[in-house]
Simulated assay, not measured.
Amino acid sequence: QYGYDVKCQVIGEKGIAELPDMPKLEMHQAGKIYHEIDHDWTYRFAEAYQLEMQDFIDHAQNNEDPAGPTAWDGLIAAVTADNAIKSQSSQQAIKIELPEQPQLYQSK
């Protein structure tokens, strides 16, 4: 019931990287400052989804492999995130070690 709100912040030793908020009309009224939260993803991501879908269609029409991320890329992201949590807990650098890449994800 809150809405669709995206927040992402990466805090490092030398600084912080943060996704920006989407531009919104900010209201100053009755002693408060506020703005509405979107109810779904379409406002923030509609153009990105359209571009991604068109890229997929273009590659399919040309008998080409899709150019977007694969399940292997998702595994790498998950392993990296797990290691970031381990590093934070242990206060030590953690080497990212991946399993052998299956043939399915290797370049042709």
Rank of each mutant, 00 (worst) to 15 (best):
D82N: 10
T80A: 04
D82S: 09
V79Q: 00
M53C: 12
H35A: 12
A30K: 06
E26H: 06
H39N: 09
Q9R: 10
S90I: 03
K14A: 06
Q1T: 15
V6H: 07
G3A: 04
G15H: 07
D40F: 06
L104Q: 13
M27K: 04
A81M: 10
P20Y: 02
N83I: 01
G74R: 04
M22S: 10
H59F: 04
E13C: 04
D21Y: 09
D38T: 06
E97W: 01
P99S: 06
I33W: 00
E100R: 02
G12T: 04
Q1R: 08
K14M: 03
L104R: 11
T80E: 02
P102W: 04
M22F: 07
F45L: 14
M53D: 15
Q92M: 10
D55Q: 13
Q9Y: 00
H59Q: 14
Q50A: 13
I16D: 05
A93T: 08
D55S: 15
H35E: 04
A17K: 06
I85T: 11
T42N: 09
Q1M: 14
Y4T: 05
K32N: 08
K32G: 05
A78N: 07
Y105W: 15
D21F: 06
E64Y: 06
E97S: 08
W72T: 01
L75Q: 01
W41T: 08
F56N: 13
G74K: 03
P66D: 09
Q88F: 15
T42F: 09
D55C: 13
D5R: 11
I76S: 00
S107K: 12
Y34K: 01
D58Q: 13
Y43H: 14
E64N: 10
P66S: 13
R44G: 03
W41Y: 15
P23Y: 03
Q88K: 10
L25I: 14
T70L: 08
A93L: 07
T70A: 08
I94G: 00
A17E: 09
L104F: 12
Q1V: 15
D38Y: 02
E18S: 12
A17M: 10
Q106S: 08
I33L: 13
D21T: 09
R44C: 05
Q29Y: 11
P20A: 06
T80Y: 03
D82W: 02
I16V: 15
T70Q: 08
Q50N: 12
N83P: 01
D73F: 11
L104A: 14
N83A: 01
I37D: 06
Q92K: 14
T42Y: 08
M22K: 09
S89R: 12
M27Y: 10
S90Y: 05
G31V: 02
H59V: 01
M53L: 13
D58P: 01
A84E: 04
E52Y: 06
E47W: 09
N62V: 07
I96S: 02
A84D: 04
K108V: 09
D58T: 11
Q101I: 14
K86P: 01
Y43R: 15
E52F: 04
P23T: 05
V10R: 03
A67F: 06
Q9P: 01
E52D: 15
P69A: 12
M22P: 01
Y105P: 00
G31M: 02
D82R: 02
M22W: 04
Y2H: 10
A93S: 12
C8V: 11
L25G: 05
N83W: 00
P99L: 03
